[in-house]
């Protein structure tokens, strides 16, 4: 079953035609990866799903329901959370406040949910009272992913979580995503092919605002011609 489907989605930003007919699907409970060179439209695809750069035509279906006409702030309520490329942890809020701001129902993070988050990212416990601006890059990334976990959303969109991280942080992020994958569907944008192939189930490679090819990750791992052509591996 597909949790998310996009059919021939076009998006314009500031008059530029950025997505030129994206068609892709993400299977429930799987990790789908978006690959492709810089500027191929991966981030715009994520933002278009979230309604932040709305689609001008085409269809986006979440659990079979059309969402491409919904307002940006309505989309998370369907059960979709995003970890943006820039992390976007609020710098004047503490880590705790950053997490609280994401809580959609009720006032606090549920105890059992908080335990789950701290289980995945133990260092966050000691960062609670720290302001976003005082975090390191790796800490910000943890908080950004943790923030996407507070509501038990079914679909997580995670944009380049390893960008600029030290190798040891990349490895702990990989372990975290492997854990998160057990209970949520993930669409992951990733440049690091080794990282990507170690946890993904399906892949879509983007080029010039379109999907150039897709399939099961095992097939890509063995297809060096495609890797060379689209990824420059």
């Amino acid at each position: 079953m597909n949790i998310l489907e996009m059919y021939d989605v076009h998006t314009y930003i500031a008059g530029f035609h950025i997505l030129e007919g994206v068609t892709l699907t993400a299977e429930h409970s799987k990790l789908t990866i978006l690959l492709g060179r810089n500027g191929s439209g991966k981030t715009t695809t994520i933002k278009t799903i979230m309604g932040l750069t709305p689609a001008s035509s085409g269809e986006i279906l979440f659990q079979g329901k059309q969402i491409q006409r919904m307002r940006d702030f309505e989309i998370p309520w369907l059960g979709i959370a995003v970890v943006p490329e820039g992390r976007d942890v609020f710098s004047d809020l503490t880590v705790e406040e950053n997490l609280l701001l994401a809580v959609r129902k009720g006032k606090k993070i549920k105890k059992q949910r908080l335990d789950y988050i701290l289980d995945i990212f133990p260092p966050i416990k000691d960062l609670f009272k720290k302001k976003g601006k005082n975090l390191s890059g790796g800490e910000k990334q943890m908080v950004a992913v943790a923030r996407a976990l507070v509501n038990e959303d079914e679909l997580l969109l995670i944009d380049e979580p390893t960008k600029g991280l030290a190798p040891i942080m990349v490895e702990s992020m990989r372990l975290a995503l492997a854990e998160i994958k057990k209970e949520a569907t993930i669409i992951l944008v990733e440049q690091n092919f080794e990282f990507a192939s170690s946890i993904a189930d399906h892949f879509f490679i983007m080029e010039h605002g379109k999907v150039a090819c897709s399939g099961k990750i095992e097939d890509l791992v063995h297809d060096e011609a495609i890797q060379r052509r689209y990824l420059g591996v």
Binding site: L52, F73, P84, D88, D92, L101
Partner: peptide, 14 residues
């Protein structure tokens, strides 16, 4: 406070 810094992320939180 969050909106002063980054409105898009605030909306992305619903």
């Amino acid at each position: 406070t969050a909106g002063i810094e980054n409105k898009e992320m605030v909306r992305a939180l619903g």
